[in-house]
């Protein structure tokens, strides 16, 4: 489903990803863990198509086709979704207008007609309810005035609406209290499906109690330095990243 092969990327003169390889198959949940500054967010931005980065080597295939030349919106309609670590506030753009534009862009790409307003409202309300997103939040401009936790829930709501095939969650657990973490995890787990895969980026093991991964990777200094099962996350929780940081530096 998602194949990242020997990916090298830089921002300005600085190389951040240094030969990253990762294969995600349909239905799988991968966790990527790693110390701050390892390049986790950089990876997620490059997958989503942010312009600031220059890919100097390697490739990224989604369902067999390279996505590196696609615009971010084309990647989105091709089935890739990034839940941002820091969802941005967009004053003046109504949440519903935004959701409708996004949903209709996806429908158009699939050759489907636009939803009618009542159909759209019903769909959004249904998804929002499950994530404890109030109609007051839906009335506000995109993410404006949302708490950290509300922003993360709103990201998952968007994900649920757009039904992507590969979901990348960048530190979706940060800034969440235990209750919110449960709500978000349930939202994610509800989307687990044989034809959908997840890459869950996190700094802490905590989230992985709720979203149980099939495979855990350690990302350090721009590379995957170790891959294992869920037990790897527990080991990291206990012993920290020190060993891997040292490895990478060596």
């Amino acid at each position: 489903m998602l194949e990242i092969k020997n990916l090298h990327a830089r921002i300005g003169d600085r190389e951040i990803l240094k030969g990253l390889t990762l294969t995600v198959k349909p239905g799988e949940v991968h966790a990527i863990m790693g110390p701050n500054g390892a390049g986790k967010s950089t990876l997620s931005y490059i997958l989503a198509g942010k312009e600031d980065y220059e890919v100097t080597e390697g490739e990224v295939l989604l369902n067999g086709a390279s996505i590196l030349d696609l615009e971010p919106n084309e990647r989105s309609v091709a089935g890739l979704f990034l839940a941002f670590q820091y969802p941005i506030e967009i004053p003046g753009v109504a949440t519903m207008t935004f959701l409708k534009a996004a949903l209709n862009a996806h429908r158009k790409a699939k050759g489907q007609d636009e939803l009618t307003t009542p159909e759209f409202m019903k769909l959004v309300k249904g998804v929002a309810e499950k994530l404890n997103i109030t109609s007051d939040m839906l009335k506000r401009p995109v993410n404006v005035g949302f708490s950290g936790g509300e922003k993360k829930r709103a990201e998952i709501m968007q994900m649920a609406l757009l039904q992507p095939s590969i979901c990348i969650l960048d530190e979706t657990d940060s800034g969440l209290d235990i209750d919110a973490l449960k709500v978000v995890s349930e939202g994610v787990n509800a989307l687990r499906a044989p034809d959908r895969a997840f890459v869950v980026i996190t700094h802490y093991q905590r989230l992985l109690d709720h979203i149980v991964p099939d495979i855990v990777h350690v990302l350090s200094d721009g590379r995957i330095v170790r891959t294992g099962g869920p037990e790897l996350a527990l080991d990291l929780e206990k012993n920290g990243y020190a060993a891997y940081v040292a490895d990478a530096a060596a």
């Binding site: 989503a48 971010p72 919106n73 989105s76 941005i88 862009a105």
Partner: peptide
Amino acid sequence: FYLLSRGIP
């Protein structure tokens, strides 16, 4: 980028 990342052209 945020809007584009949601598929909006």
